[in-house]
Design a protein around this nucleic acid. Sequence first.
DNA 1: TTGGAATGTCAACAAGGCTGACATAAAATG
DNA 2: CATTTTATGTCAGCCTTGTTGACATTCCAA
Lengths: 170, 170
Amino acid sequence: MADDMRGGGSGGESLLFLTDEQLRKGIEAMFFAYRGFTADPDRILAEHGYGRAHHRAVHFINRSPGTTVNNLLGILGVTKQSLNRVLRTLIEDGLVESRIGTRDKRERHLYLTETGQALEQALSDAQRDRMRAAYKMAGPEAVTGFRQVLEAMMDPELRRHFATLKESGS
Amino acid sequence: MADDMRGGGSGGESLLFLTDEQLRKGIEAMFFAYRGFTADPDRILAEHGYGRAHHRAVHFINRSPGTTVNNLLGILGVTKQSLNRVLRTLIEDGLVESRIGTRDKRERHLYLTETGQALEQALSDAQRDRMRAAYKMAGPEAVTGFRQVLEAMMDPELRRHFATLKESGS
DNA sequence: TTGGAATGTCAACAAGGCTGACATAAAATG
DNA sequence: CATTTTATGTCAGCCTTGTTGACATTCCAA
């Protein structure tokens, strides 16, 4: 339990004084914050009869237009059956368009329609507002730390996906 | 979209240069990090035939022994029926003990048995290890920022619950 | 003492995970 | 050219964990 007792200088070393209590509070903070993080989109989704699974699909299709089903599976970490069910409803409802690949005709490339983009916009507006407010409340230095800890918490494979998405941004 | 363009000094003001892209990456970081955050407990829970709902119940009962069902409902933010199902299996399996209140006989006070404490220990050990590793990787200053942003992201009511739990800690 | 509020339980349903089996079409390989 | 692998989709069925509705018990206050 309270092992890890090397003397601490400046770097990551003084962290070794972290008590179970402090770690527990970090865990609870993640739990409560994630609830807030999803609360606003959840309300919008409910109005349309969708759930978080739809949100995730729409988000990442918007992020990488023309992405394939297989690529999306890697990012979302669900089974193809599960993703397929969500994609099917989104396509039926005219929010997502699925085009057969030109080079490899087995692949389906996914795009948001205008309606799909409108929903994505509404969802991400709400979520960005929350994120922006939290950033403002916490201050700019906190934001850097926030991002560093989150990135360190990811599984390596997910961190790879995250980094790939990063490239297409700042 | 790119409104919010007031000049920035030191405080929360330079944050106003936050682009949609930067906010989007914050959102994705939350998504990927939360997956990592739950991955280790999920594996342990699966071995026992439990899910995240059981984890949450066990966690907060351990945190506040003798808590009532109603109090737990406020923290977890689910319906009493949903919580009841989870509690029932935990009680049947001998992980949780439910004692009828002495003052108010409508209330049930919840306690972890030794077996329950053992599971809680295993789960929180795994989750704390992940959290500790992330903290070390990110450095001590990052940890402060991380906590500040998370707390700012919570809904006010949840922040109240979080603060209440904090009191019984450091 | 009687009716409402608080608390908790049981039943049934839906979303969205999961596995397994299988079909199809195209690409890659021997 | 035949075969295997890959990418995708579909059907069936299961589990967890949300939901609402109905109901029992207990307490308290009118």
